[in-house]
Design a protein around this nucleic acid. Structure first.
Lengths: 148, 148
DNA sequence: CATTAATTGACAGGGAGTTTCTGTTAGTCG
DNA sequence: CGACTAACAGAAACTCCCTGTCAATTAATG
């Protein structure tokens, strides 16, 4: 049995949200898909295969809801649509490397940013709650391809 | 005479783009407004005061064009609309502190990120071209307000 | 089970841009 | 100084991602 599923049930219950088949199906899509940054439309398509009656609005609403209870993490790669991924079990911040050519997204971990955060907080009187770091460039494949 | 104005003229000329009154007016809006991150609509409103006949599509097109020739810098604070600011004269990277409460945007400079970039490039075989770092949190005023 | 508030699906609506089209104009050349 | 032409402008329709509305349905609790 998947751990996320139980976590979702608990968190839904805490907030008096209901456990519906649609929500299960959508979570399942993320579990099966594993890693990857799915757009609402991606999810819609995956989910339609199992349940053709599901509505697009429900997908959007569910994604927002799952992000709210921190089962998913909502993110923005600047391509005009939101993307979602399963938020890692722990507070394990990672960031993205976005290929400007093929739009593939890779990930990397960070710890270095904590220091920077402290410095900035002090200098600017800003209370930092979250950060978002993205690198844009060319992945290995595209570098090779472009050099040709 | 403003230096940016001349720069714009040169760069337009280089690419065989024309210098139109609309483009002048839009640049002027940024010059007068000084610092600040203007949305297309902000610009549209500022510009309408001087030239009520200007079209919204022209504003969008011009902003993209000015970003292309690097007079402006286009950025995305995740609020669903693009914002633009005059790109500093030099390659002076700065990043943003976004208040989650009042949505004010402050800035800070960075140098620390270069190191991180090098590390990541090596580890991931990714050729990094640009980066984007944002901090979300509470500005001084909102911290005070919320604690009350 | 009965109740009821949350949820769903369908579809209209909204915001931010973008495309298309036709008429206008800036820049160049003679 | 014109005349020519590619770039440009404005208007309006259109696209893309969602978001709101509403009647019908359903999960959870008593």
């Amino acid at each position: 049995m998947e751990k996320v599923y139980n976590t979702m049930c608990e968190r839904l219950h805490e907030k008096a949200y209901k456990l519906t088949p649609q929500r299960e199906t959508i979570l399942q899509a993320f579990v099966e898909q594993g890693k990857g940054h799915l757009s609402a439309e991606d999810v819609y398509n995956l989910v339609k295969a199992k349940n053709p009656d599901i509505g697009l609005a429900t997908v959007y609403r569910t994604l927002d809801l799952l992000a709210e209870i921190e089962i998913l993490q909502k993110m923005d790669f600047g391509d005009g649509r939101s993307r979602y991924e399963m938020s890692g079990s722990e507070e394990h911040h990672h960031h993205h490397l976005i290929c400007l050519n093929c739009h593939k997204v890779a990930e990397f971990d960070d710890d270095l940013l904590e220091t920077l955060e402290a410095v900035i907080a002090r200098k600017s009187n800003f209370k930092i709650i979250d950060h978002d770091l993205k690198f844009y460039g060319l992945c290995k494949e595209c570098q090779a391809q472009i050099e040709k």
